[in-house]
Structures are given as structure tokens and as C-alpha cells.
């Protein structure tokens, strides 16, 4: 059965040739349009410099705006996925809890976030809530006095220390926002586990925690991996909306470089390749993980 599938997939038929030909023609047509109709003079020479530049004073290669933006997006993505997963797990458990108050908290959270546009949510959070909590503004002042070693580690983990406050509020906004969708995925996963599994685990006299930890969650987890991967990829792409609150991630850096150099197409093509790299990397990772968990069944 497995073997038959594999053979089917690798056999090349005339349909593949036709599809490939159509694709090639389409790309050729696009290139023709851009060159002859759009009056666009391509100049890719500025792009490499904005990725990495040779610093003559330091005598070494330094990441420039686009690479820095790429790292910022990567940081946002990794921290965002971690934080959103924690929020989603906790809230997902709340939503399936037998305690009414917890269910209400979970439900309110999800409905509140899902029914407010992300941009409004970002503005409200960044301009009201984070200004009410002095932490976010003070953290910037506190970081200014930190020792060089801690500054270096902060920079590695969270980006430019001066913008730590911004980074944290952006990260929290992003995680809260995506966490609502992950909550729903977690809830659906938990509820997809058959009643019989709960009953069998309960009847063995396992504690509530053990039932969740050893019976329900592992089964729910392998079922939610595919939608979870999709949500994480959404998170990475959605991270560009936090550019509105002065977080210099990839989209923000691209806007600045495009504005300064006026090489609009080159910059945005480069940036889309970079987003693609992160997102595709993420889906490959999840594909492998999925295969591993399904192997153990």
C-alpha cells in the first residue's frame, strides 16, 4: 500500500510536462511584462549590501537592515510561537474544563480576540495597556544601565536592548492574538479524543492531571499538529503587523530600505524570499515531526 503510493508519486507523466510548460511560459510572460511594459530598471546591486555589509572600521562583515529585520522576525516568530503555545494550551484546557468560571474565562478570551481586528487590538494594547503598565517603558531605561554582558545576551535573545520595551509589547500582542486561535485548535484536539479514552483512563483511577498528561494530551497533540503548523505559519506572517508599533522586523526594515533606495521590487522580492524561507522551514520541521509522531502509532 505504502509502496504503491510512493511509486505513483514519482512517476512523471505527460500531464507533468504540460503543467511545467505552462508554468515556464507564465513566468516568462511576467518577466517580459516587467521589463518591457513597466519601465522598471532592475538593479539588484544594492540588495546584498543591505543584507550584510563590509565594515571597514571593524574589518568584518556586519548584518545590515534586511538581515537585522530577518533576525527580528525570527525572534518574534520563535518567542511568539512559544508564548502563543503556552497561552493556547492553558486557555484550551480552560475551555474544556469542567469548572464553569474557567470555561467562561477561556471563552471570553477567544471571542474577544477573534472578533476584534488585529490592528485595533495592537493599537489598544500598545497605546493604552502597555502605557498603563510602567514596566514596558521603564524596561528601556533599566536596560540602558545594564552591564555589557547582559546587554549582549539581551541583544541575542530579544534584539536591540533600547527597543526591548517595544519588542516585548509587540511579542505579547502577537502571542495573545495568535494564542486565541491556538486555544481553539487545542480545544478541538482535546474534544476529538473519544469519550472512551477518558472513561478508560478514569476507570483506572488515574488523577485528573495524569489523565490529561498521559492519555488525552498526547493523542490530541498528534491530531492538532497539522492545523498547529498552519497557525504558526500564520503567526510568522502576521508578525509584520507589529511593524506599526516601531518593531523593526523584516517588513519595517524593507519599507525603510525601499524608501531610501527606491528599489521597490528588488527589496520586496528579497523580503518575500526571506519570509518564504522562514515559513517553509517551519512547515518542513512540522512535517518531520508529524511523521515521527505518526510512526509511533
Amino acid at each position: 500500500m505504502m509502496l504503491a503510493n510512493a511509486q505513483k508519486r514519482t512517476r512523471v507523466t505527460w500531464v507533468d510536462f504540460v503543467v511545467a510548460l505552462v508554468l515556464v511560459l507564465f513566468v516568462a510572460f511576467l518577466v517580459y511584462r516587467v521589463n518591457d511594459v513597466l519601465h522598471y530598471r532592475w538593479n539588484w546591486s544594492v540588495i546584498p549590501n543591505f543584507l550584510y555589509r563590509w565594515d571597514e572600521e571593524l574589518g568584518s562583515w556586519m548584518p545590515n537592515l534586511l538581515a537585522l529585520g530577518f533576525y527580528a522576525t525570527l525572534r518574534l516568530a520563535i518567542w511568539g510561537i512559544l508564548l502563543a503555545s503556552v497561552i493556547g494550551m492553558v486557555m484550551g484546557l480552560c475551555r474544556t474544563s469542567s469548572i464553569l468560571l474557567l470555561r467562561m474565562i477561556g471563552r471570553s478570551y477567544v471571542e474577544l480576540i477573534r472578533n476584534v481586528p488585529p490592528l485595533v487590538f495592537i493599537f489598544i494594547f500598545y497605546f493604552f495597556i502597555s502605557s498603563q503598565i510602567p514596566l514596558f517603558d521603564d524596561i528601556g531605561d533599566w536596560v540602558r544601565q545594564a552591564s555589557p554582558e547582559s546587554l549582549a545576551s539581551i541583544e541575542f535573545l530579544f534584539g536591540p536592548p533600547k527597543l526591548l520595551g517595544n519588542f516585548l509589547s509587540g511579542l505579547i500582542v502577537l502571542a495573545l492574538f495568535e494564542g486565541a486561535y491556538i486555544t481553539e485548535i487545542v480545544r478541538a484536539g482535546l474534544q476529538s479524543v473519544e469519550r472512551g479514552q477518558w472513561e478508560a483512563a478514569d476507570s483506572l483511577g488515574l488523577s485528573r492531571f495524569d489523565v490529561m498528561r498521559y492519555v488525552i494530551v498526547p493523542q490530541a497533540f498528534s491530531r492538532v499538529l497539522p492545523p498547529l503548523a498552519g497557525q504558526f505559519i500564520s503567526l510568522i506572517k502576521d508578525s509584520s503587523i507589529v511593524s506599526l508599533i516601531s518593531i523593526q522586523e523584516l517588513t519595517f526594515a524593507a519599507t525603510e530600505v525601499a524608501n531610501s533606495t527606491q528599489r521597490v521590487f528588488e527589496v520586496w522580492i528579497t523580503v518575500s524570499v526571506m519570509y518564504f524561507a522562514i515559513c517553509f522551514g517551519c512547515s518542513l520541521l512540522f512535517e518531520r515531526w508529524e511523521k515521527r509522531t505518526s510512526k509511533s502509532r
Binding site: 473519544e194 472512551g196 479514552q197 472513561e199 478508560a200 483512563a201 492519555v215 493523542q219 498528534s222 502509532r297
Partner: peptide, 11 residues
């Protein structure tokens, strides 16, 4: 307790 559908843990 033993169930009609066995309810073994498939993972």
C-alpha cells in the same frame, strides 16, 4: 472496568 470498545490507549 472492561468496555465494549476495549478503549485501549492507541498511542
Amino acid at each position: 472496568m472492561v468496555f465494549q470498545q476495549f478503549n485501549l490507549f492507541p498511542h
